[in-house]
């Protein structure tokens, strides 16, 4: 089983946790929200908190377990794992955040535009989205990395493009439903501009759905970016990133030094599951609400 398959298991588990009815505080939702907020904070301040420099090697103390000196132990080059995990938080969280922000913005614009214009414009855009939908994101990212080179922005851009149709398709059907409501016609009769109707009315009514879908997509983007780094096509050493840390620690697994792969892997799973449950719960609440 590949890392990707393994880390997707908890996503399924998240789906099995049944969302509660709306109206009352939902402890699972609040818990996941707090974890997600904590991870975002970590991305912001993590690199400042590192106890050791990132690339300070210490071959004599390589692949050690936790100790008073190195709270989470060291990697195969003797670098402090805690420092690398803290520093790795930024790219590991920023990448999916950028992917989700960009793809959601693009997706919503495309979806609302298509739904509002209707007719042929809508049909053409919908078919194009369907085609894009069939292309797997990881494949595009790998090819893009092969052609354009590795690093942070190439996989992020590739994943943004492939995530856009996911968001657009869901938002599109909601936008179409919204456009068909009589209040939209009443606004048109009142002489409100298309821009105003789309931004002030339609967008506002589909925004909660878009936010929920974006949160859900965050979990997937986090793992896809992790997988790309795992394959060595993302950020290059000595930069720290959780996905590539899982990969780097792989060689040590056979010798029983599980700390690097495990800690980084646990963080990825924790982040993915939290964002996934958060997104599903938000989506379920919105479904209930309307």
């Amino acid at each position: 089983m590949s890392l990707e398959q393994l880390t997707r298991l908890p996503l399924l588990a998240g789906r099995l946790v049944r969302p509660r009815r709306r109206g009352h505080a939902d402890p699972v939702l609040i818990g996941c929200g707090l974890i997600c907020a904590g991870l975002l904070a970590l991305a912001l301040i993590g690199p400042v908190l590192t106890p050791y420099p990132l690339d300070q090697t210490d071959i004599l103390n390589a692949s050690q377990g936790p100790s008073a000196e190195h709270l989470l132990g060291t990697d195969s080059l003797g670098r402090d794992l805690l420092s690398r995990l803290l520093a790795g938080a930024r790219p590991s969280i920023t990448a999916p955040a950028v992917i989700v922000l960009a793809s959601t913005t693009l997706g919503v614009i495309v979806a609302v535009f298509a739904a509002w214009r209707g007719g042929r414009v809508d049909r053409v855009i919908s078919r194009m989205l369907d085609v894009m939908f069939t292309v797997p994101g990881l494949l595009v990212a790998v090819i893009a990395a092969a052609i354009l080179g590795t690093g942070f922005w190439v996989p992020v851009a590739a994943l943004t493009v492939t995530y856009m149709p996911y968001i657009a398709r869901i938002v599109h059907s909601a936008a179409i439903r919204e456009c068909r409501l009589p209040y939209v016609e009443a606004c048109q009769l009142a002489g409100l501009s298309s821009w105003r109707i789309c931004t002030r009315h339609i967008l506002r009514n589909i925004a909660p759905l878009a936010v929920a879908q974006a949160t859900l997509a965050f979990a997937w983007a986090l793992m896809d970016f992790g997988a790309i780094s795992f394959l060595g096509l993302g950020l290059q050493p000595p930069a720290a990133e959780w996905g590539s840390m899982v990969n780097e620690g792989r060689a040590d697994l056979l010798t029983g030094a599980i700390w690097e792969s495990m800690t980084a892997g646990v963080l990825i799973v924790l982040a993915a599951v939290s964002f996934n449950i958060l997104g599903e719960r938000l989506a379920a609440r919105i479904g209930d609400g309307s």
Partner: peptide, 22 residues
């Protein structure tokens, strides 16, 4: 939509006739 605001319309469905978030 050429009549401007001189012609307005009230629809049948009281639930869909207003923006739910306004």
């Amino acid at each position: 939509l050429r009549a401007g605001r001189d012609i307005q319309m009230v629809f049948q469905d009281p639930f869909g006739s207003l923006d739910p978030r306004q």
